[in-house]
Design a protein around this nucleic acid. Structure first.
Lengths: 228, 228
DNA sequence: CACTGTGAATGCATTCACAGCG
DNA sequence: CGCTGTGAATGCATTCACAGTG
């Protein structure tokens, strides 16, 4: 969940045109806010204070206020934030309100299948436009409403469907080749689940999600606490 | 990802036995170093410089040196770092060299199955000692060498096998209950894949790995770049 | 009042720059 | 030389604290 390859991600350069610099860490929390507000909205909670929101997410109230302030002034003194309004506003800012993002998923092993089946993606504005795998038994078949393509067709299909985000869920050995194909097709961001560092042009955002890294981070801390 | 108070993480300096604070961000990179060094080791590369290691991982050379310096002095002036030695040393520090970590996995849907089947975990020192699911059709069956238990048995089994790490791969509605069971059994760390914030004692480390959050982070940036 | 929004202060993390070593 | 290890400087992110508002 942590970006290994962080190409000095700046919010945005242009101060002149009124764009605000948003800390990267804040962006990461933005979708947590949306998630939580979505629940409150469904429960018809009309207002929420920074304090309560913070408590719910394990943050501090000051941090919630600071984070939200990067995007505008949404609150009412004395009462807090209007839940539906804030939810709508943040959803729009996240870029998942008014539009659907096309996604290309490569690799339909256990993990790839899990991702394809995960309803959360669709609900949150992501659609699998292209799905591919190297297994001849899978190519051509239809899974979860998507026709499985061959690796050789990735670049063409990505371009054809104007897909902007690629997901790599293939074994280590194939990851870089898949990455190249996605880049050739014109994706602008990639989520990589293979435990290897990819090489891609700086214009393409790469985010790594090696699941074992999560566990190892925890192991480090546990090991320390043990030998004390 | 998790925000709560950053606990004092300590490492030991090269000289003396005074313990020094290791930045949390550095810990996250530690397993990347191990991963990369493992590959170099297999290719029988004897030495590697901070420059080359950095290039390979998309970092700066200064950062690599700084990170490694938190754990000791491993390098040789003029030549760089001895690959096998550094690999062994970091593996030990990570806590995945000399021991195996017992893991409890709850939820055997697509994602849970993917995790269970992922060989990377076993290779990197993690063993699924307890596996559970609420589906009566799965309970009692044997998957990937693990007997599937019922949710009601989680706490008991976790304690019995002295499991320290829990993985939650169940739907949102069941996540908190599973979390409670894992905590009752005595786990000290949890990786949560359910898109919800869990409540757990401060002594239990919780790390969230909501896959949609990754995508949304990317969407935010893409949305910004579009409307320029 | 209870709460937001934000300068200012603090605390981390990264980068610079260079002394020192093989 | 080429490269490490590390003070010092810089740049981010979080927290404090309080003026201001409905």
């Amino acid at each position: 969940m942590r970006a290994a390859r962080t190409p000095a991600v700046r919010g945005h350069a242009g101060k002149g045109n009124g764009r605000i610099q948003v800390p990267e860490a804040c962006v990461a929390r933005l979708s947590l806010y949306v998630r939580e507000l979505g629940q409150l909205k469904r429960r018809r909670v009309p207002f929420v204070s920074s304090r309560r929101l913070a408590q719910q997410l394990g943050l501090t109230d000051a941090q919630v206020r600071r984070d939200l302030s990067y995007f505008g002034q949404f609150g009412t003194s004395g009462r807090g934030y209007e839940v539906p309004r804030l939810h709508d506003r943040l959803t729009t800012i996240l870029g998942v309100a008014d539009r659907t993002w096309g996604v290309a998923l490569v690799g339909l092993g256990n993990l790839g299948s899990a991702l394809l089946a995960y309803r959360g993606f669709r609900e949150r504005g992501f659609a699998f436009k292209v799905v591919a795998d190297a297994d001849p038994n899978k190519i051509g078949r239809s899974l979860y409403g998507a026709q499985v393509a061959a690796p050789g067709d990735i670049a063409r299909l990505v371009r054809q469907h104007a897909v902007q985000i690629g997901i790599i869920a293939v074994p280590v050995g194939a990851a870089q080749k898949v990455c190249d194909a996605l880049v050739a097709g014109g994706v602008r961001a990639i989520v990589n689940f293979a435990p290897v560092t990819l090489t891609a042009p700086a214009s393409v955002r790469v985010r790594n999600a090696d699941l074992a890294v999560e566990l190892e981070g925890l192991a480090f801390h546990l090991a320390r606490e043990n030998h004390r």
